[in-house]
């Protein structure tokens, strides 16, 4: 791969970054090629030791999305960060996606339970509308108690979701910091 091919590939993998940042990154690599060439290396040699441009692009994207997710724990930011970290390698697919799906299921289950409890009086009313004969006051009072419980669960879930999201973004950061490499043989 020569300089032009390398930079083109790198640029293609940076499409989602802000334009300014793309330019800045490309400049760094242009400088790297310039100096390498002035030291007598060929473009092919330089790009070979730099490694895969799309892998470099993935690392930069992961850093970018992790930073965004760390500043604002919105669902879309977290999803993008998870996706970007998974993209870093197969290893991450296993150790990121598994816990993510599990945590997502827990959060979802909590919210659904809370929501179902809150709307339970509505169910009693629907039941009343469909089959008026079976109405019992016990059902109504019980469902109102459930609403209270549901509200408590919802408040608890608010904190739990926030807590899990922060923790998970930290876990992602930890994962993004694993890099493949080793010591030289000589």
């Amino acid at each position: 791969m020569n300089r032009e091919q390398f930079l083109k590939k790198l640029n293609a993998s940076l499409k989602k970054l802000p334009h300014e940042e793309q330019e800045d990154i490309l400049e760094d690599f242009q400088e790297h090629f310039d100096i390498g060439k002035s030291e007598g290396k060929t473009e092919e040699e330089i790009s070979k030791s730099l490694g895969s441009p799309s892998q470099i692009g993935k690392e930069l994207l992961a850093t970018h999305y992790l930073e965004k997710a760390g500043n604002d724990y919105s669902a879309s930011n977290i999803f993008r960060a998870v996706w970007a970290v998974i993209g870093l390698g197969f290893f991450n697919l296993v150790i990121v996606l598994g816990p993510f799906v599990a945590l997502l299921a827990i959060i979802l289950a909590g919210w659904i339970t809370g929501a179902a409890f809150i709307v339970s009086p509505l169910m009693v009313l629907i039941n009343l509308a469909i089959s008026p004969g079976t109405f019992e006051f016990f059902d109504l009072f019980f469902s109102i108690a459930l609403t209270g419980l549901g509200l408590l669960i919802a408040i608890g879930m608010l904190y739990a979701t926030r807590f899990i999201a922060t923790g998970f973004v930290r876990y992602l950061n930890f994962n993004a910091k694993l890099v493949k490499g080793g010591l030289k043989h000589e």
Binding site: F29, E31, I35, S49, G51, I56, V179, K180
Partner: peptide
């Protein structure tokens, strides 16, 4: 030091894909 110099110094000792130093430098700057 400049980026190229850092990359050379490190790869004299450790095999890395040299390109990954630049994302790291950006993060350290941020």
């Amino acid at each position: 030091r400049y980026g190229y110099e850092l990359v050379q110094k490190i790869s004299e000792q450790i095999t890395i894909s040299e390109g990954s130093v630049y994302p790291l430098l950006r993060r350290l700057k941020k």
